[in-house]
Structure formats: C-alpha cells, structure tokens
Amino acid sequence: MKFVKIEGGVKLSQCIAPMSATLSDEPAFDDPKWLFEIKWDGYRAVAELNGKDTRLYSRNGLSYNKAYPKIYNELVKMKVDAVLDGEVVVFRDGMPSFQAIQNYKSTQNLPIQFIVFDCLQHNGKDLTKFKLIERKEILKSILQQSDVIKYCDHVEEDGVALFEQATKMNLEGIIAKRMDSKYYPDKRSKEWLKIKNVKVDDFKIIGWTDSKASRQYFGALLLAREVDGQLVYSGEVGTGFTNDLLKSLYAKIQPLEVNECPLDTPVKKEKGFHWAKPKYSCQVQYVEMTDDGHVRHPAFLGLRKDK
C-alpha cells in the first residue's frame, strides 16, 4: 500500500471513506423501523483488520496507526478478517471529550476506546448491501471486545427515551438509523440522522479579525459552512481560546492569507477582516443559527484534524 506524506501525518493512497449521517432539523422520535445509538464525540475511523497489515485511519485516509497505538495494537491482536467503522473516543471524568482527543499527545493518560458500530466486510465478503441490523449482528458476533475495543450497542424504536437519557448525561446527542439501511461509502444519507443535544458543527476557517487590546494574534476566526456544495459565510467565533491556542492557530492561518474573499458568494470585507484559504476545519458550539445564517453565541472547541 502506498502512502502520501501530508502535514500532521501519513495519508493512505487508497482507503474507504465512511458513510455519513445527515443533521436532522427534527427532534428525537420513536419508530419501529429505526434503531438509535449514542452520538460519540470523537474522531471517525475505519479499521481494516488483517493481522500485521491492519490499518486504522480517518475519514479522509489519515493513518491513525501511530496516533492511537493503544487501539492499533489491540486491533492487530484480533484474529478477524474484517473492515470496521467506528469512532475513536477519549474519556475525561467518564465522559467523551473532543478537546481531550484533539490534544491526545498530552492526554494519553486518559482512557481511549474504539467504539465500533458497523461492519463493511467479513472474510472478504462485502456486507454493504446487507441491512444495517444484519451487519450489526455480524459485527457483534465477531468483535473481540476489550477495555479499548467496544461494540456500540443500540436501542430499537425508542429514540425519544434514548435522547432524553443522552441529554441528562450531557452527551452530544444520538444517531438514528433505519434498520434496513444499506451502507454507502463516501455518501451522506438521510437514512442516518444526527439528532444533537447541543448544536455543535464543523466550519471552515476563512480568515480572522484583528486582535484586540485584551489579546494577541487575532480577535476572532471567520467561519463558513458548506450549503449545497458552496461555502456560505457563517459569522465569527471569538471565545474558547487560550493564549497558547491563539498563538498556534495564528501560526497556521496567517500564511494562508489571501486578498480575495474565498466564499462562492463573496461578502463585504469589514474593517479588520483578513481572508484566508479555507484549508482548516474547526468544531464550534453555538446556541442557534440566526436568520442571516450566522452562529449565535459561538464557542471554539477545536480544530478538526481529521478533516
């Protein structure tokens, strides 16, 4: 297998891009045709199990073999020929922590798990055309669980009750999936739905504003989101940064400065705005989206290193 060196690691030249869920505008629901899982706040990962040739990588093919050795070493031990889809999750005080996994080099003392929720291949057989409930039954029967490798359980029909429990536990939300859904790699499907407790989404960083007297480097990051294949301005986020984070982010985005607005439909450049090539994605928590499409009361959570 060939590799391509990129910033932050090694990218595989051939990999499987996982299927994605669609963000739901509707609340949690009950339906006998659907099953429901906890939405884990971590990094999506695909594992190709084949002894010493086992590979663990991100949704865009970034190798995780060395990034998460505790998980990789457990996967290598598994005497199973399979392709698994799941989430790498780091726990702080018993709860999934996105910031902990983002800074895993300094949080390796915290528990880490690969929580597996789907099986795409087994013993060379393609399972993507199987029903989800059938794939999960196969997965549960072959997965060798440990403190690090876990099967993602689910409830059938009772989505409202699971969402209420997730809310009480202050989890990010739940994933609703049609029990008969097939698996479509590299596709976003409405047969899988993200139902979030808190509004947390990914945005492209398209620039920054001038720093203020109270802080160095920059005042806020300028954000955009993808709507129907186009980048649309989504406002700015100016909270959630430490001084060290401000410094490291500025070092990444300042060399990307451009004169032209990187949006498909340009917006007016306000005083103090600096445009940048939209290379980096970040995760932002917010209360709601305003009528003009801007995030309201946002807080920066971290860079999406897997995107």
Rank of each mutant, 00 (worst) to 15 (best):
Y280N: 03
L256F: 05
L249D: 01
M289N: 03
E270Q: 14
E257R: 15
R304M: 04
C261L: 10
I253C: 11
K277T: 00
D291M: 08
P262A: 08
F273R: 00
A251D: 14
V287L: 11
K269R: 15
D264N: 15
C282I: 06
A251C: 02
A251E: 14
F273V: 00
H274V: 10
N259E: 14
W275L: 12
I253W: 04
D292W: 02
D291R: 14
V287R: 12
K269Q: 15
W275D: 08
H274Q: 11
K269S: 14
Q285V: 06
K279Y: 11
Q283S: 09
D292G: 02
E257W: 00
K247C: 11
S248F: 02
I253G: 04
I253P: 00
L301T: 09
A299S: 15
L256G: 01
H274E: 03
V284I: 15
K268D: 10
V287T: 15
D264V: 07
D264R: 02
L301F: 08
E288K: 14
K252T: 05
P262H: 06
F273D: 00
A276F: 05
A251G: 10
Q283T: 12
M289K: 13
H294I: 00
T290E: 05
K279A: 13
E288A: 10
A251L: 10
T265L: 07
F300S: 05
V295Y: 10
K305Q: 11
T290G: 02
E270G: 11
M289C: 03
S281H: 13
E257H: 11
A276Q: 01
A276R: 05
D292A: 06
P298A: 08
P262L: 07
R304E: 01
G272R: 04
G293M: 07
A276M: 04
G272Y: 08
Q254G: 00
L256Y: 03
N259M: 09
M289T: 13
V284F: 07
P278C: 11
E270P: 00
P278R: 09
A276I: 03
K269I: 04
N259V: 07
L249Q: 02
E288T: 14
H297M: 13
Q283V: 15
E288F: 02
P262R: 06
I253T: 09
W275K: 05
H274L: 05
Q254V: 07
H297R: 12
V267I: 15
K252W: 01
G293P: 07
